[in-house]
Design a protein around this nucleic acid. Structure first.
Length: 559
RNA sequence: GCGCCCGUAGCUCAGUGGAUAGAGCACCGGCCUCCGGAGCCGGGUGCGGAGGUUCGAUUCCUCUCGGGCGUACCA
């Protein structure tokens, strides 16, 4: 139930009817219906809603926009939309609609009755998969993974709340070149720690975490690996390390509030022959050729800058080959839409991935890729530098430890994915209203505090039907207007893959609440007013809670 | 060089082709001390630049300047 959309639909029908009547009676002529909008004007002087239909019709109808607007307004029967109070023509030819503010009196009952479903959309009957983080299991989770986790999970939440059937998936890169190198690195460290004088591979993983893993292996198996064949030994240490890394990744992401439906192993694609199958299909369709001993995919046919190797001269498939098989597999699993959240460093991969999807016969628009720009951490006003030892600045688990899950998620979700963001660690930790996440949570806690006091004084929240909403003044109505927007915000955030809208909305609503709180009392007022304001508080609380829940941030009752 | 993303107020950032472009912080002035730790009111110069499409452009297109990323038989 979306109150704004309901009104908008009503107004749209009204305008359409008026247009038809105008044409039938010969007031003006048009052949095709313009793609007009019913929107909420920025300036409230311009009404509650307005439409640009007359401006769009001017050329076809060969009349001045204002003239057309006058005619349309003359054909509209006000009584069709009960809350419609008046209309006028303004500006270049806009038609403005003014509502009777009493329509807002219905909002609290709607919100209270829907509770934690307020803002949700109707079932879309569309299967959407969101794949995010998919960090390499060869190292720690870094800030890119953190941002991807927060954005991906919040986006998935928003889509689910908006009515889509959503699955969250993590792609485990447990095969391929990097795993080979990972194995060689682990083996080299093992042998070194066991006293052998051998060189560490040039391209190897030099981080401390590899050494730590090897120490665990030694603790468990001591010298048992020394007698193994090198390949067996590498397979052994890789298996051990992958188990350990995946346990770490799962645990850290769980602490970050993320639960996946599917953990998908790249290795199963190779072992199940799906990589070969996908390449065969591309070859049959004529998109594969051989050159310099390697197999290439003709991604230039799909707008890419250069063709891309899928099987190296040494016979091993590339990461891209596995990714083609992986995406084919996704579509074969019946998803209508597949969304990937990727770091900006993968953007070169986008066009060829879409090309491969198209080559396999799928509509490339069904694959949507959300690219995130880089994160710069600040502490004490200066950039936190990359650590040479660990290869990261701060890992996700350290970030959660330092600022907490709630602040971390809110900060990442607050910014749109495609802007490079600065993350101020000091601000995230601050327990003051300067801190955006604290500001929103504090609004919720304050509301609960009011209810605790009300209860102590013997007052309870009355059902909306017993509350006189005419007690609401302009500020209460302004808040209710904002709350009425919530379902639209969810819907737009889901449609445009923009979870930052929800964070911003929560901040705006919290701001309206704090301002109200500072100007008015809820308790110890006239009973009718107190009842109405308690209901308003409940309405705000529910909406803030629902918004925060999408972002993955808790709504505490006390702080 | 080529490709993608970004460029909005002093700073961090919003802004589904609409009417007079916003928020928070910072800064200045005035007020207030009340459910929860201070708050309230007021104060402003900005869409990097130049063209184009449009009745209308921060939004779409072209060029240009600046920043980031990519441009591997790495992932």
């Amino acid at each position: 139930m979306d109150p704004i959309q309901t009104i908008r639909d009503g107004l749209t029908r009204l305008v359409l009817t008026a247009l038809e009547k105008s044409r039938e009676t010969g007031m003006f002529h048009f052949d095709s219906l313009p793609n007009f909008v019913i929107e909420v004007p920025r300036d409230e002087e311009h009404g509650d809603f307005s439409t640009n239909v007359a401006l769009l019709l001017a050329r076809q109808a060969k009349k001045a926009p204002r003239k057309i607007a006058e005619i349309v307004v003359g054909q509209i029967d006000l009584s069709y939309v009960p809350e419609l109070a008046k209309m006028d023509v303004a500006g270049a030819g806009f038609i403005n609609f003014y509502l009777d503010q009493s329509w807002l009196y219905r909002i609290p009952a709607l919100v209270v009755s829907m509770g934690n479903r307020y803002g949700s959309g109707e079932r879309q009957n569309q299967k959407v998969q969101v794949e995010f983080v998919s960090a390499n299991p060869t190292g720690n989770l870094h800030m890119g993974n953190a941002r991807g986790g927060a954005i991906g999970d919040s986006l998935a939440n928003a889509l689910a709340f908006a009515g889509y059937d959503v699955e969250r998936e993590f792609y485990i890169n447990d095969a391929g070149n990097q795993i080979e190198i990972f194995g060689q690195s682990l083996e080299a460290r093992y042998l070194q720690l066991m006293g052998a004088k051998i060189e560490f591979p040039d391209e190897g993983y030099a981080g401390q975490d590899v050494v730590d893993t090897v120490k665990n292996i030694i603790r468990e198996y001591n010298d048992k690996l020394l007698s193994m064949e090198p390949l067996t030994r590498q397979a052994f240490v890789v298996d051990y390390a992958l188990k350990e890394k995946m346990a770490y990744i799962k645990n850290t992401l769980a602490n970050f509030g993320i639960q996946y439906n599917v953990w998908f192993s790249e290795r199963t694609l190779h072992e199940g022959g799906q990589v070969t199958q996908a390449l065969d299909e591309l070859r049959q369709k004529g998109y594969i050729y051989e050159e310099d001993g390697a197999l290439w995919f003709k991604s230039t046919l799909f707008g890419d800058e250069k063709d891309e190797v899928v099987v190296r001269a040494n016979g091993l498939p590339t990461y891209f080959a596995a990714d083609i098989a992986y995406h084919k597999n996704k579509f074969d699993r019946g998803f209508d839409r597949v969304i990937n959240v990727w770091g900006a460093d993968h953007h070169g991969h986008v066009s060829r991935m879409k090309g491969a999807i198209q080559a396999l016969g799928y509509d490339p628009d069904r694959l949507e890729i959300l690219l995130m720009q880089l994160v710069r951490l600040y502490r004490g006003g200066v950039v936190v530098r990359m650590s040479k030892r660990t290869g990261t600045t701060v890992s996700l688990d350290e970030l959660i430890e330092e600022v907490g899950k709630d602040a971390a998620r809110f900060f990442f979700v607050m910014r749109s994915a495609d802007s490079q963001m600065e993350f101020d660690l000091d601000l995230a930790k601050e327990k003051s209203q300067e801190n955006p996440v604290y500001y929103v949570q504090y609004a919720h806690a304050r509301i609960q505090s009011i209810f605790r006091q009300a209860k102590a004084a013997g007052f309870e929240l009355k059902p909306p039907s017993e509350v006189d909403c005419t007690a609401f003044g302009p500020e209460e109505l302004q808040i209710l207007r904002k709350i009425a927007d919530f379902p639209q915000e969810i819907s737009v955030a889901a449609r445009t893959l923009a979870p930052q809208r929800i964070a911003r909305y929560a901040l705006d609503l919290a701001g309206l609440f704090h301002s109200f709180y500072n100007h008015h009392r809820v308790l110890n007022e006239d009973r009718a007013l107190q009842d109405a304001r308690l209901l308003l508080m409940e309405t705000i609380g529910i909406t803030i809670r629902n918004g925060l829940s999408i972002i993955g941030v808790s709504a505490p009752d006390q702080m």
